[in-house]
Simulated scan of single mutants.
Amino acid sequence: MEYISLVWNEGVTLKSSDKQVIEESLQKEYNVTMYNYTYEQLIEEKLYAQQKTTLRGILLTIEKQQQSNNPDEMTIEVSKYRANEGAIALDMKLACQEGQWKVVEYGMIREC
């Protein structure tokens, strides 16, 4: 994996500082280049393998965000794409613990 491209759909209302923390955490954890390119932009930049349907990195899309009644909890829908055969979507429950958002529960929504 050469990179992670993280895309935020318009319906996701996280603060810019929270988004930055997530990006920095991913970069630190996986030690790869971070982009904010859509699939189309990744193809334009030639960041795919021999076939355009297989990326040299991972495209993560934060698709939806649902705030709970508790301001320290939320659920997000995330999809991961690397190739047509490996796309999945997850529901992730996040909780703010000690000032940091952490995944406390997740489940698969769909697999392609």
Results as ranks from 00 to 15, higher is better:
2 E>S: 05
2 E>F: 06
4 I>D: 04
4 I>R: 06
5 S>I: 06
5 S>N: 01
6 L>I: 14
6 L>G: 01
7 V>P: 06
8 W>N: 07
9 N>I: 04
11 G>I: 07
11 G>H: 03
11 G>E: 09
12 V>R: 03
12 V>D: 02
17 S>G: 00
18 D>A: 08
19 K>I: 05
20 Q>W: 07
22 I>Y: 01
23 E>Q: 02
24 E>W: 09
25 S>A: 13
25 S>I: 01
26 L>H: 08
27 Q>T: 05
27 Q>V: 05
28 K>Y: 14
29 E>A: 14
29 E>V: 12
29 E>P: 03
29 E>Y: 10
31 N>A: 13
31 N>H: 11
35 Y>I: 11
36 N>D: 14
36 N>I: 04
37 Y>M: 13
38 T>N: 01
40 E>A: 13
41 Q>R: 07
41 Q>E: 15
42 L>A: 08
43 I>F: 08
44 E>S: 15
45 E>P: 04
45 E>I: 01
45 E>V: 03
46 K>M: 10
46 K>W: 03
46 K>T: 06
46 K>A: 14
46 K>D: 13
46 K>F: 04
48 Y>C: 13
48 Y>E: 07
50 Q>C: 12
51 Q>K: 15
51 Q>F: 15
53 T>W: 09
54 T>W: 04
55 L>V: 08
56 R>M: 08
56 R>F: 02
56 R>I: 11
56 R>P: 02
57 G>C: 04
57 G>F: 02
57 G>N: 02
58 I>R: 02
58 I>C: 04
59 L>W: 00
59 L>I: 00
60 L>K: 05
60 L>G: 00
61 T>G: 00
62 I>V: 07
62 I>D: 00
64 K>P: 07
65 Q>V: 03
65 Q>R: 05
66 Q>A: 11
66 Q>C: 10
67 Q>E: 08
67 Q>H: 12
67 Q>K: 14
69 N>K: 12
71 P>T: 13
72 D>P: 07
74 M>S: 09
75 T>G: 07
75 T>A: 14
75 T>R: 14
75 T>P: 08
78 V>K: 00
78 V>P: 00
79 S>T: 08
80 K>W: 07
81 Y>D: 05
82 R>W: 01
82 R>G: 02
83 A>Y: 04
84 N>Q: 10
86 G>H: 11
86 G>W: 12
87 A>W: 06
87 A>D: 01
87 A>M: 11
87 A>E: 11
88 I>E: 10
89 A>V: 10
89 A>Q: 08
90 L>P: 03
91 D>N: 12
91 D>E: 15
92 M>S: 09
93 K>S: 09
95 A>G: 03
95 A>M: 12
96 C>I: 10
97 Q>A: 14
100 Q>K: 15
101 W>V: 08
101 W>R: 04
103 V>L: 04
104 V>K: 02
104 V>H: 01
105 E>P: 00
105 E>D: 10
105 E>V: 02
106 Y>R: 09
106 Y>M: 13
108 M>T: 14
108 M>A: 13
109 I>K: 15
110 R>S: 11
111 E>K: 12
112 C>L: 10
112 C>T: 11
